[in-house]
Design a protein around this nucleic acid. Structure first.
Lengths: 128, 128
DNA sequence: TTGACTCAAGTACGCCTGTACGTGTAGCCT
DNA sequence: AGGCTACACGTACAGGCGTACTTGAGTCAA
């Protein structure tokens, strides 16, 4: 499949909001930005247009207004992004990143518990 | 501290090599590239120059040759990069990324074991 | 129906990035 | 000494990115 062009920082911000909203007009996305993130209406508009050209969203006309919806699931984008990052930062190795995340960024106790379960599940499932 | 400009994909590639080599000339870095990654000598040169301007490396002259060394530790760069990524992709939450890594990318058995130990250690240490 | 207002779409623009070319000079061969 | 080679440095340039201004068209009030 012809690799979609990767999302840039700003495009990603908008994409996340679009995923949350499921579908939205420029205005709605713009309003969905957190209050402390000032960004021009037309900037958001540009991002949405670019998401469309890159194949991450489609728009349908409702009156004279474009209503955008995502065409790629977050999971997919996330996978692609992380793959890329792991390649670039750790030469493709997953563990250093996991280690970094767990050691250097705070993980709450309940998350540790969840993690433990996750590992249990994997250890069982994997060797079959 | 005046936030260093973030490293781009290509700059990161070079930075990683420089970390490995500890210090190196353009040529050495160029040669350190894997065989299947064709890249022009002068491109590497440009990246190293940019690393210098961005404050990630210094160069000292040895004869008429510049010998570059990193000035920022990998750990630091990694932290900054991940922070950024986690913010952009998961709104600052660490766990979704960890989950993604463990579930969607293969983790080897011995790594799972290590992970388990890591968690044990944290659970003990953290609540003190 | 004309002005004032609102908003979508197009256009703009400077900086960054990936990539490399051209030019000049230090050293080596003859 | 005159040329050839190897290489460092500066320069270049097209495309992407972040951000927004401008223009034109629909809408409502007087």
């Amino acid at each position: 499949m012809a690799r979609r062009a990767a999302l840039s920082k700003g495009e990603m911000e908008v994409a996340r909001l679009l995923w949350q909203l499921k579908q939205a007009t420029v205005r709605q996305v713009h309003e969905a930005f957190p209050a402390d993130r000032t960004i021009d209406f037309t900037t958001v508009q540009t991002y949405l247009r670019r998401l469309e050209t890159k194949g991450y969203a489609t728009a349908r006309l409702q009156g004279r207004t474009r209503v955008y919806s995502p065409t790629v699931r977050p999971r997919t984008v996330i996978r692609e992004t992380i793959d890329d990052l792991v390649d670039r930062l750790f030469g493709g190795e997953t563990m250093p990143l996991v280690r970094h995340l767990i050691e250097d960024r705070g993980i709450r106790d309940e998350d540790l518990a969840e993690l433990r379960e996750l590992i249990d599940r994997l250890e069982k499932g994997e060797r079959s």
